[in-house]
Design a protein around this nucleic acid. Structure first.
Lengths: 356, 356
DNA sequence: CTGTTAGCGCGTTCAC
DNA sequence: GTGAACGCGCTAACAG
């Protein structure tokens, strides 16, 4: 009878359930708390039995159970990260940065993709909450403003990345890139090269980035006292089917050339590459006939011909800073929102204006 | 006395600790198990108190504790993923695929980067074990063979991605790309275009991929009955300082041209782009004077001029398949290792051989 | 239908 | 130095 009962239990233990401190306690003829102490190098335990228990644990290849520990410690050593798309090299860099400093702080990263969908973003964050993460990072949500009501319930430190937080409460913190400065840098560079007919080639989403880069463009022109021409600004109608940035660059370039610009600041590298391709079709030489500046400093920008002058986003750094901020936050420190300054990367797609 | 004791506890509850089913049970005047059942829609509970409890839970904005549930269920609904670098767009795509099917299966993804370091890979996997993940995915480890001894201890289903498993035991499973076939596809394409002097431009790491792509090249030539020339194979000395793939392409191209090839199969897109740049410097036109084939089908390949003919890796699909395999595994199904067939993407860097 | 009890694996008093 | 007992939050078995 006794055998009939112990057999299946033993089988279960062997097959699936991992060894616990109770298992090794039984084998060592001590109590489970002695084992717990021995494994944690408590000085209360005689060094003799401590070594013995450690050896035993090794043999039974014991692996402590983080779940049980979490329940006891009230700590999960986990942070949650939400990005719109993992495949986007941009967010890849960002997550890399986050993971690096998380790892140093002995924290693990739980990753979720929202695909730009509001529902999925909320679901991901609630799930993180459910799992008791110790911090949350949300990157580049376009629907961020709808967050506020739902998110204020959350007690977990949260930092938003590349989201406009000007109108947010004190609940959230953020690190973002200064797109206005970026646009301004690009245009100033062109001005320094002697250009005065400078175009802007943008995209039609209503994003904060799009708006601010354009503002940077206008600011730089105004500061230099250069007259602005509406025909030099090309932005596709937002009603249009969503087309790829590359195609936007391709299709919109001719009208700017037509309008007489000698240089163009493009919303991003993709648009710039599109413009570059269009130039080739038109028989225009870059930078001889037309100077082009991109934005983002994606890997792409250095491999096209000619390599693109562009504005660097520093996503890796943003990830590191955001995670560092999260760490500070969970230690009760007060933090300041960060607005990172992008910088110009000069390559070969820009040159001094030729007077022909 | 009683007040002195309850006050700090109450404060603690208010400040940090989230509301538990016990909290809401107390407020509702029922037992905690009644609350548990009500929340889980047990039919044992009268619909009246069930609704009442649910409303109460809502008000106290109760969020169940996944940790406590895990301890009880013996399930974590978590899988661990190890990649060498998250920033690499390649792995970004892979992880995207993994996350997509994980999400459908209600599983969360714990992400770790190894940076190609053996120690870190092991550490990541042990950490996953410690956290009781329900499955592990490891991508592209070059030191995979050293794994076996350590990893056989693990009972968690594990699938290896893009790792040669021919010599591995039955403990692990894998999905990988057929590099040999890929190389063969590329070269066959060149043969069909009339080329007979076909070069191979490779890299000097001793990876399985490097070796098998070269084998594919040789196989295709042999099958077509085309004579092989050692001078048409350019592979940098592995002793050299580790240089970037792009530079390898740039530096090694001239010697192949010298040797008289009319087309080249490059180890990857990066090498091919390097070769492309070198061609420009030499005044060679691609594909007029020289046809070039890459490997990987990175975003890059479609944006250079001319767009690169290349072999597609399908990382997104690999991620999906690997995760699906993991799911099957944890359901006790028997699975077969997968060897994915890459396919050729024809673009503009290859053309029929011109007789001049 | 509902309450009581036990237990998931572990850390931690509090006694001995 | 060591063991017994309790609690972390929850589910499930067993009583009523």
């Amino acid at each position: 009878m006794l055998i009939l009962f112990t057999l299946p239990i033993a089988l279960l233990n062997m097959s699936k359930r991992k060894t616990s401190i109770e298992d090794i306690a039984r084998k060592a003829g001590v109590s489970h708390s002695t084992v717990s102490r021995a494994l944690r190098d408590s000085k209360l335990i005689s060094s003799k039995v401590r070594e013995e228990i450690k050896k035993l644990a090794q043999e039974m290849n014991y692996v402590p159970n983080a779940i049980a520990q979490s329940l006891q410690n009230q700590r999960t050593y986990t942070v949650g990260v939400v990005v719109t798309s993992i495949a986007d090299p941009f967010f890849g860099e960002l997550v890399e940065g986050i993971e690096q400093v998380a790892r140093e702080a002995k924290l693990n990263v739980l990753l979720s993709a929202s695909h730009g969908d509001f529902e999925q973003e909320i679901a991901a964050i609630e799930n993180f909450h459910y799992r008791r993460v110790e911090g949350i990072l949300v990157a580049d949500s376009r629907v961020s403003k709808q967050y506020t009501p739902k998110l204020t319930q959350f007690t977990v430190p949260t930092v938003l990345i590349n989201i406009d937080t000007e109108d947010q409460g004190k609940t959230f913190h953020s690190v973002a890139i200064d797109d206005r400065l970026g646009g301004s840098l690009a245009v100033k560079h062109l001005i320094e090269l002697g250009h005065t007919c400078i175009g802007y080639l943008g995209v039609g989403d209503g994003s904060k980035a799009a708006q601010q880069r354009l503002e940077g463009y206008q600011m730089a022109l105004a500061q230099a006292g250069i007259a602005q021409n509406p025909d030099w600004i090309a932005i596709p109608n937002p009603d249009h089917e969503i087309i790829k940035d590359l195609d936007i660059g391709k299709k919109m370039l001719p009208q700017l050339v037509e309008a007489g610009v000698t240089s163009i600041f493009c919303y991003n590298d993709m648009v710039a590459v599109g413009a570059l391709l269009a130039c080739k079709e038109l028989g225009l030489s870059v930078p001889r006939d037309l100077s082009l500046v991109g934005f983002d400093n994606t890997a792409l920008s250095s491999y096209v011909t000619p390599p693109l002058t562009t504005v660097s986003q520093r996503m890796l750094e943003m990830g590191k800073l955001a995670m560092t901020m999260l760490l500070d936050l969970s230690q009760g420190k007060t933090v300041e929102n960060l607005l990172l300054s992008p910088f110009l990367v000069k390559r070969d797609s820009t040159d001094i204006k030729l007077y022909r």
